[in-house]
């Protein structure tokens, strides 16, 4: 399990990284935390001729709040998310979920941007971002563009990120008062991807749910929002019956593939169960329970 040869580039600015990416095109790969890419290179499923390491670009790290928006540098590591007081205070869904990703050592390397940009349906941040209504800043040769998470994920390892572009920042609107979050993940063991996971962010007005996002991990070609399920709950006082109905609707949107974690029926059913659990915990959270 040895990677093939490549040329290594370690730019220290985003401009340099973009220039290198422009120069080498599809012969190049960006390496962030490397815990998806290096194993693929060791198996020689990926054999880039140029590896552009963006770990040295300090402008891509950090978490700040600006104008009702939390802005997270794409190279911020999972452990930095978990250690962030801003996030625990303003957007606890992110660090709550990050704690369930991989293991402590891997979380020191793995980055939020890498997790999102890789387009792996087993990664957890895509669903979290969909639930939070986040946007991504993509830098390219012609400047920056900001795209919503909703619509960014197009398929397995397939996103709106275009050749020559680097994800630089994740922008999350600060959830207003009265919101609640829930994250439920089923995995075989620490270090595994989810058999199924669900992220929920909702808002209550009194007892009534005014807005809810439900998003799922690893039960389709890419992470997706369970929109019918969300619509079914919006404007209603959510009770157990409604939760079950919503879970059924979310299950109808699932399209998992069979693997050693389970067959399609199991994964779909687990997606439903994770949705149920995540909604319940989001409700308790919103009610301050």
């Amino acid at each position: 399990m040895i990677p093939g040869n490549f040329e290594y580039h370690a730019p220290t600015s985003l401009a340099d990284a973009l220039a290198l990416l422009g120069q080498y095109g599809d012969e190049a790969k960006i390496i962030a935390g490397g815990h998806s890419l290096l194993p693929m290179m060791k198996l020689r499923f990926a054999e880039p001729e140029h590896l552009i390491d963006i770990n040295g670009i300090s402008e891509l790290r950090g978490i700040r709040e600006e104008g009702g928006m939390i802005k997270i540098g794409a190279m911020t590591t999972e452990n930095q998310l978990i250690a962030s007081e801003i996030l625990w205070d303003k957007c606890p869904l992110i660090p709550t979920a990050a704690k369930l990703i991989a293991d402590p050592q891997v979380r020191n390397r793995g980055t939020i941007g890498g997790d999102i940009a890789h387009g792996d349906p087993g990664n957890d941040h895509p669903a979290i971002m969909l639930a939070l209504g986040a946007s991504f800043v993509l830098a390219g040769p012609d400047g920056e563009r900001t795209v919503p998470a909703d619509g960014f994920f197009l398929g397995t390892y397939y996103t709106q990120l275009e050749e020559g572009e680097i994800m630089t920042e994740i922008q999350v609107p600060v959830p207003p008062a009265g919101s609640g979050y829930g994250f439920s993940k089923l995995k075989r063991k620490t270090g595994d991807f989810a058999t199924a996971a669900a992220a929920v962010q909702l808002q209550l007005n009194g007892d009534s749910c005014t807005q809810i996002n439900i998003a799922l991990t690893n039960v389709g070609p890419c992470s997706f929002k369970a929109s019918d399920a969300a619509a079914h709950l919006t404007g209603k006082v959510i009770d157990d019956a409604l939760i079950s109905e919503a879970a059924e609707k979310a299950m109808a949107d699932c399209d998992p593939s069979e693997d050693l974690r389970g067959n399609i029926e199991y994964k779909t059913s687990m997606a439903g169960e994770m949705v149920r659990r995540a909604i319940r915990s989001a409700l308790s959270n919103a009610k301050g329970e």
Partner: peptide
């Protein structure tokens, strides 16, 4: 053979 890495082959960690 399906599952021949420690991703799939079950070795419990301290958590499990």
């Amino acid at each position: 053979l399906l599952g021949n890495t420690f991703m799939d082959y079950f070795w419990p960690t301290m958590v499990e």
